[in-house]
Design a protein around this nucleic acid. Structure first.
Lengths: 156, 156
DNA sequence: GGTAGCGCCGAATTTTGTTCGGCGGGGGTT
DNA sequence: AACCCCCGCCGAACAAAATTCGGCGCTACC
């Protein structure tokens, strides 16, 4: 999949603000609105642009405590891994799920109202699953996201 | 920050597709367009809705290999933690950074073109920092995100 | 039972999205 | 070297959406 500089500029703008008007977007990347519209359509059709998501403040929806929970599944068979993945992804506390190599099989990012909620998640929810052999919880103090397509670097 | 059922319905819709037209959004949540517009504005002003981001396929921008890297900082002083956080967040390979409690101080989610790129990131980039005492890399086979505001559950 | 305040509505206006015919430039062919 | 083809950008016209704002009704508190 090759992207030219215009495609990359468009992606950069859209990950800063996916709701910029097409006119603004066109002006920002230096083409006509019809051109940027066509490029965006192409990026969607090619699967580069998968969609647009609202960025919601977890604190203000009452989920201010976050944690990363490393989970070991035993035995780590396909059956157990897939079953756990589907189950954990559907829990309301789960924000995202990483399936990993290494000493642990999953990293589960959760957001809960408070530390009680976190404790309850670990000792009530996770332990209901027989394939969960081991759990290690780390509280997330801060979570920073960075753009997937890098900003342009200043040229000298 | 209290949200009523209409606010939550709007957030649910916007995290599925942040670019739905306001008319569609209004129809989906059962109010007039002017009402949903006003609610969305309020959610933004209150900081609940932080913005709108494009969801970009990492594979198609040449960053198909992902990993989670646990990093231990020694000594874990505020000075060292903040310096490392700022530095690592600016690297082009970094997708997101979790500052955590527990045996490790950071979890760094990276996306690179291939396994060579991953290896280079760990042994070239991370080791330039003197405060990095320990590094543990886990390849991410799969990453699933789930909505922050839960979908409505079917009522019986 | 009255009244004040809040939030929803819908029509009018402004702004934006979208389509499409044409034009220009780069690359390939003779 | 000249020609031609094709691709992609452009801009104007049309369609659709966002946004504003006056008014109305509901609720809750006198």
């Amino acid at each position: 999949m090759d992207l030219d500089e215009l495609d990359r500029a468009i992606l950069r703008e859209l990950q800063k603000d996916a709701r910029r008007t097409n006119r603004d977007l066109a002006a920002a990347v230096g083409v006509a609105p019809s051109t940027s519209l066509e490029r965006v359509r192409s990026l969607r059709e090619r699967g580069v642009l998968r969609g647009y998501r609202a960025d919601i403040d977890l604190e203000s929806i009452g989920r201010g405590v976050q944690a990363m929970i490393a989970v070991r599944i035993r035995p780590p068979s396909r059956r157990n891994i897939e079953a756990f993945r589907e189950w954990v992804a559907r829990l309301p506390e789960t924000v995202s799920v990483f399936v990993t190599s290494g000493t642990r099989d999953f990293l589960v990012h959760v957001a809960v109202p408070d530390t009680d909620g976190l404790y309850a998640f670990v000792i009530d929810r996770l332990t209901e699953r027989p394939e969960v052999a081991d759990v290690e919880t780390s509280v997330v103090y801060e979570h920073m996201r960075t753009p997937a397509v890098e900003p342009v670097r200043p040229q000298r």
